[in-house]
Amino acid sequence: MRPFTFERATSTQAAVKSAAEIPNSKFIAGGTNLLDLMKLEIEHPAHLIDVGRLPLAGIEDTSEGGLRIGAMATNSHVAAHAQVRSRYPVLTQAIVAGGSGQLRNKATTGGNLMQRTRCVYFYDSTKPCNKRQPGSGCGALEGLNRNSAIFGASHACIATHPSDMAIALAALDAKVETLSPSGQVRSFAATELHRLPGETPDIETHLIPGELITAVVLPPPPKGGQVYRKVRDRASYAAGLASVAIAGGNVALGCVAHKPWRAEKAEAALASGSSSAEAIAAELSEASNNGRNRFKIDLIARLVPVAIAQANGSQI
């Protein structure tokens, strides 16, 4: 293991100040992803700032009729919260589709958004990976890329974002609140927090160095049904092959891009009266593939209409 220093942040302001001042520092909360990456020599922070005990774990109503979820609320806590279960069931379904019970008990809302791809080439430091080591190339491009992106990929990176929760947040038009080292509070749409890979897949979000996610804010739930469907190789504790979150007329796709993918073309087609099959076909017209992940296009085409029907009350 490589030496690193560790501090427990006493306040949110102190945390972001430390992060800005100390080179190569990282926030840590549940540590369910970062510790693995450190053990595998994929991440090597010089300094860890533990934000896990900051008073950011609350879940409260907003004056707009929505819900404000503190960044340190654990995945388990959010998924089980009565308001979330009754008004945002897609979020509960998405969270419990991810990880395992033990992981969800440790993992936090902010950390879930900041988790890194499960691309096997990213995890294997003997392989080239532009995300892990910029400029080294992409092992997945010509490799076993079954679980890579079909939207927004670049020649530098075809990795996907692994979060289930983030797909539901994208469908719910959630906002992500942050505090930057300068003291500025910023707000991102859940679909605008993460970036597409482009030439710099190592830069995964629009956060500036030292900026900390403090909360996720849900607007009032959209009218209409909600559902989250995830397809995976085994019934639990497995990364998805494809997933979809439906919230009213909103459709977000998971396991298909470097970021939560809001299917705007499909939504527009649905809004203009297209069938769900036509709508998702419109979205998939711009999908690309690298061979082994071709099946995802077909899978999404089959999955989304069923999910929409389910959200609309079909028993299937």
Binding site: R118, V120, Y121, Y123, D124, T126, K127, G139, E142, G143, L144, D233, R234, A235, S236, Y237, A238, A239
Partner: peptide
């Protein structure tokens, strides 16, 4: 679920941990 895939370029097993090599879990 089970099996190791061999990367054709590197000759290695790419699913080399228990998150990638899927053995059945209780829910299966």
């Amino acid at each position: 679920t089970e099996g190791n895939s061999v990367d054709p370029h590197y000759g290695s097993l790419i699913n080399q941990d228990l998150a990638g090599y899927l053995v059945p879990v209780q829910a299966d």
